[in-house]
Structures are given as C-alpha cells and as structure tokens.
C-alpha cells in the first residue's frame, strides 16, 4: 500500500472531501508553480524585512546573519518581494 497524500480513486474520496489531518496543506509544494525565482544581492540588502512582510506565501525567512531567503518548496515566484524591495536587492531570475 502506497502512502498517498490524497485519494487515488473516486471511491476513496472522503464525504465532502474532508481532510482529517491538520496542517496537511504544507505537504502541497506550491514551489512547482514557479517560473522565476527571487535572488538576493546581499550587498544591496539593508535587512529591512520588507520582503518578509510582503511575501503572500509566508515563505521568506530571516537567517542567523540577518539576511533573508525564500523557501523554494513554497515560493511561487510571484515577484512581490522583488517589487517591494526599495534598495532593489532582489531580482527575479528565470528558472533554468
């Protein structure tokens, strides 16, 4: 039996498609939607945290050194962080 994250056949669908496991949405990696990724230039970064505040996915985190990075499992590449970063320390780069 394969441990599946969601039902395989229609008979396995819970009534109302209810999910009984809390927080299971985190198992869905929205990072696969991304076509561009944010790249930080820490020489320009002033550690203001605007990117962290504006990220709609909540996937930008502050590192121990005070600089920021995105969790690529969840970053959809929307570019809002790059748009809001006023020192222009973030650029959106095509996924290769």
């Amino acid at each position: 039996m394969v441990n599946r994250k969601w039902p395989e056949t229609w008979q396995e669908v819970n009534p109302g498609c209810m999910v009984f496991e809390p927080g299971s949405a985190s198992e869905y990696h929205t990072g696969t939607w991304r076509s561009q990724k944010p790249v930080w230039n820490n020489e320009k970064c002033i550690k203001c945290g605007i990117c962290y505040i504006f990220c709609p996915e909540g996937c930008i985190h502050e590192g121990a050194d005070g600089y920021f990075s995105a969790d690529m499992d969840y970053c959809k590449g929307c570019g809002i962080c790059a748009h809001e970063c006023w020192p222009a320390a973030i650029s959106m780069v095509e996924e290769g």
């Binding site: 056949t9 109302g16 999910v19």
Partner: peptide, 28 residues
Amino acid sequence: PYATLHPDRPVSMGTFAGNDIYTEISKS
C-alpha cells in the same frame, strides 16, 4: 454529523482540489 468543526478534532472542510483529484470528487 459525519464530522464537525471543533478545535479538539481538527478537520478541513471545503479544501482546494486541483486537476489531479477534482474529477474523482465530482464522480463521488
């Protein structure tokens, strides 16, 4: 009820379903 919204027994109702499962849900 089959399930209820209750903090002690967490369930998610009305979740998102993409093209990988929407058809199976419709059939059910």
